[in-house]
Design a binder for these strands. Structure first.
Length: 821
DNA sequence: AACTTTGGCCTCTGCT
DNA sequence: AGCAGAGGCCAA
């Protein structure tokens, strides 16, 4: 097949709403006001190509390429020859073949969508968003989701208009009509957000539409799972563990908007529909309300808009797939490379499998150096440390030259004030010894630099705009998007499956941080300051005044870092330490676990309103039980709270523990007090099954066992589901637990206190008052009682080998159990 | 599509 | 009692 250069005109649209591959074609979704649906689908050949340097291709090979049926076209682009292969298989096959002939190929195996977007520097266009929710036949178990008839759907548009439609009859024809009407409406939208859509609404809609042979270009829409988006974006925003226990739309709406959800039982939608009349209306209202809640949630959080901005910044699409950092960064790098005329070598190596081989060293975390209640602790941290490191060393896979010098050699040189790596135009990363060229700018480093530059532009624009206006909001969102894109670059480069993965680069980033922090700590010690804790990019220092600490930070920036960085061959200026805050008192429980009372934050003095800073403690964890969180919250408040804190008399805390022990062991408890909630991070069947010595399968962890029970009951249990359970007998081995939905008042109060409620607070108190023995407060049952209980449990098991209790408990039994405790 | 990273603490299970 | 492995969630 012969194809002249540039025989196919390149198409450069203003903006692309979405793009997808269909067979041989790449379909572009473009805005077009003249069409009834407001869009136009433009089909062009999907490009599976690679590039080679013309100088490396002998004329003979070139004519062979021209004749080959595997080649759809050849095009000269400056010093490059672009070879368009028939399909992705040919591209893969011949790239490998060319490599064997010592001809390097570039940009091979690229997804045609990504290729198009980057090659044309195509803008990501504005899309028409709607919020979508389905109700389906609740009688059909989740495992047979595809057979569940759709009872109603609701659509809320970003302009506030809304519509809900309900199945008229329990017939195929009626459902077909319902779906037809839905697709008619969806035609006016490009981006569809649904809560848990990836696991429920989208597959169900697809399956039911296929069932009715309704054909639609499914991939033309941007399907977006609003729940997953919220989970991702909100991961760092949640304050207490209480907010992390459920990701149901109702729970999130309540936490974020303070609104409660409708009153239809999700497991009774069929009955509600079948009752007809007002009940059916109620189902419609309930359905619509969920879609409305999503819009309200977005109006409050702006996460969908932020994803849109990220897409615009990276050249990815704002759907569920586009939430992935790897997709965002790959698009960003490719786009930048095209801008700069750079071509990445085709990653020929077989697809890498995630393994221990490619793991690398990460951040430095210091063991807290002081116990007890520590007073006047100052904290400084590096601003955007990893991005600034990438830029300072010009780190990128292609700027990396060689590995030289050991950690010890580098340190020894630096200590003597001499350069560990003497060549001009190159810099060396400490610890890893990897050398990078300073010119030209690397793609990774360039991407980070560009994102930070554009972020500054956005921030400037924001500063010039009137707060709260659309322009101001847009600028703020763009700023966030650039920050996220810049920060994702490090994570992506460390991913073994990432196209541009480079473990040496990733490790050089984290280890440069380790080295800088260690140098900082050493310098602090020399000045008589005492570094007592450090994690990744921050140092906690005690034993100095505010002024002394500010002086130290200023000296680091003005003298220490410039000197060190120049010795390593880097241009200083970006690495910057900032005095962030000070604690009037702080208690370190462990690494990554502490609580403290601010004296100031960025210079602003704390007030009685200021909440204590709590890191890593059970109070912040969604998998601790509420009793544990509440007790710990009280203890932390008495210890480091602005209003009630500052207590240094252990007796106060002893009384607290006694009061709570009484509450846990004797007083009435409700389910929310004692339920343990854990997420399911894998499909239920992929959890490790261990075989015991006796040949039997070992019991899996409680939340997994409970998830299996719930699955058998036909409950909707998937990856990401949250599983609640209650320990009703902790003396058996293994523990006896029941699904939260079976709870009727029974709970092992002693076990709850001894293993879940008391320890988290006791650890805090042991840290604050190391001289006191807090263990006695934890123990409820004596050793004799425990062994007696164990024996009884064993005997019980032998006579009736029921490992798991489930189902409802009779009233009388529950009463007995409660009293027996 | 199913895939940001490593460091770290903690609970549960089964074993010695 | 202490260990190791599995697993979850959090800090950065």
């Amino acid at each position: 097949m012969i194809s002249a250069a540039n025989s196919e005109p390149r198409f450069q649209p203003d903006g692309v709403i979405n793009a997808y591959v269909e067979g041989w074609e790449l379909v572009l979704v473009l805005s077009d006001a003249s069409m009834p649906s407001g869009i136009r689908l433009r089909r062009i050949p999907a490009e599976h190509s690679c590039l080679v340097k013309i100088s490396e291709v002998p004329e003979l090979l070139r004519s062979m390429l021209r004749e080959s049926t595997a080649v759809r076209g050849l095009r000269e682009e400056g010093e490059w020859l672009r070879i368009r292969w028939r399909d992705s298989f040919d591209c893969r096959k011949y790239c490998k073949l060319l490599v064997e002939k010592s001809i390097t190929t570039y940009d091979g195996f690229l997804d045609p969508i990504l290729r198009f977007m980057a090659d044309n520097q195509a803008k990501v266009a504005a899309r028409r968003l709607c919020y979508f929710d389905l109700e389906s036949d609740s009688r059909v178990p989740f495992s047979r989701l595809h057979d569940a008839r759709i009872l109603s759907w609701a659509l809320v548009c970003s302009d506030g208009s809304e519509i809900v439609e309900v199945l008229s009859d329990d017939t195929e024809a009626a459902e077909r009509e319902l779906l037809r009407s839905l697709w008619n409406r969806l035609d006016k939208h490009d981006q569809v957000a649904a809560w848990n859509g990836d696991k429920f609404d989208f597959p169900l809609l697809k399956a039911r539409s296929e069932h009715h042979a309704i054909s639609m270009p499914w991939k033309r829409w941007l399907w977006l799972d609003h729940l997953e988006l919220f989970r991702k974006m909100n991961a760092h925003a949640a304050e207490s563990g209480a907010e992390k226990q459920s990701f149901s739309l109702g729970a999130i709406a309540k936490a974020v908007l303070g609104e409660s959800k409708g009153d239809v039982d999700g497991s009774k939608t069929w009955q509600t529909w079948a009752a007809g009349g007002a009940e059916r209306e109620r189902l419609a209202d309930y359905n619509l309300r969920d879609a409305q809640l999503m819009k309200k949630l977005e109006d409050k959080t702006g996460y969908v808009a932020l994803l849109g901005s990220i897409a615009e910044v990276c050249g990815s699409f704002p759907d569920s797939r586009g939430m992935m950092a790897s997709v965002q960064v790959e698009n960003l790098l490719q786009r930048l490379a095209v801008q700069r005329g750079f071509r990445f070598e085709t990653p020929i190596a077989a697809h890498k499998v995630k393994g221990a081989e490619d793991s690398y060293r990460g951040a430095y975390v210091m063991e807290p150096a002081e116990r007890g209640i520590v007073k006047n602790v100052h904290v400084a941290d590096f601003s955007s440390l990893y991005p600034t490191i990438i830029r300072t060393w010009n780190m990128s896979p292609e700027t990396k030259t060689r590995r030289s010098r050991s950690e010890r050699e580098i340190d020894s040189s630096v200590r003597h004030g001499s350069k560990p790596w003497p060549f001009d135009g190159e810099c060396i990363s400490p610890i890893t010894g990897v050398v990078f060229k300073m010119q030209p700018q690397g793609m990774l480093s360039g991407a980070v630099a560009e994102m930070m530059r554009l972020r500054k532009e956005s921030n400037d624009r924001k500063a010039r705009s009137v707060p709260g206006t659309a322009e101001w909001q847009e600028a703020a969102r763009k700023s966030d998007a650039y920050k996220i894109a810049a920060n994702s670059c490090y994570g992506a480069i460390g991913m073994t499956t990432f196209r541009h993965h480079d473990v040496e680069v990733a490790e050089s980033v984290s280890q440069a941080a380790v080295w800088l922090i260690r140098q900082t700590i050493e310098a602090a010690d020399k000045r008589g300051l005492h570094a007592i804790y450090c994690d990744t990019d921050s140092v906690f220092v005690s034993g100095c005044t505010r002024e002394e600490f500010a002086d130290f930070v200023a000296w680091c920036n003005a003298e220490l870092y410039p000197r060190l960085l120049r010795l390593l061959g880097c241009e200083p200026g970006l690495i910057n330490l900032a005095y962030e805050k000070a604690f009037e008192r702080i208690v370190f429980v462990q690494k990554k676990r502490y609580c403290g009372r601010y004296s100031h934050y960025k210079g602003t003095a704390a007030t009685s309103e200021s909440k204590p800073e709590v890191k890593g403690l059970e109070y912040k964890r969604g998998d601790s039980i509420r009793l544990a969180r509440q007790l710990q919250e009280e203890a932390v408040d008495l210890l480091v709270g602005q209003e009630h804190g500052g207590n240094e008399d252990p007796e106060i805390f002893k009384r607290l523990l006694e009061r709570w022990r009484e509450r846990v062991l004797v007083q009435p408890l409700e389910l929310a007090d004692v339920v343990v909630v854990k997420g399911l991070n894998k499909p239920i069947n992929s959890y490790a099954k261990r075989i015991k010595k006796d040949g039997m399968e070992a019991r899996q962890l409680p939340h997994i066992e409970v998830a299996k029970i719930l699955t058998e009951r036909g409950r909707e249990i998937t990856e990401g589901s949250r599983i609640g359970y209650v320990i009703i007998d902790g003396s058996t081995n293994p523990q006896t637990v029941i699904p939260a939905e079976d709870w009727s008042g029974k709970v092992d109060r002693s076990a709850a206190w001894e293993s879940l409620v008391a320890p988290p607070t006791i650890r805090v108190l042991e840290a604050a008052f190391p001289a006191i023995d807090w263990k006695p407060f934890e123990i409820v049952r004596t050793k004799e009682q425990k062994s007696k209980a164990r024996k009884a449990a064993r005997a019980n098991q032998e006579s009736a080998p029921v490992l798991f209790e489930s189902g409802q408990y009779s009233r009388s039994k529950e009463k007995n159990d409660a009293e027996a405790d």
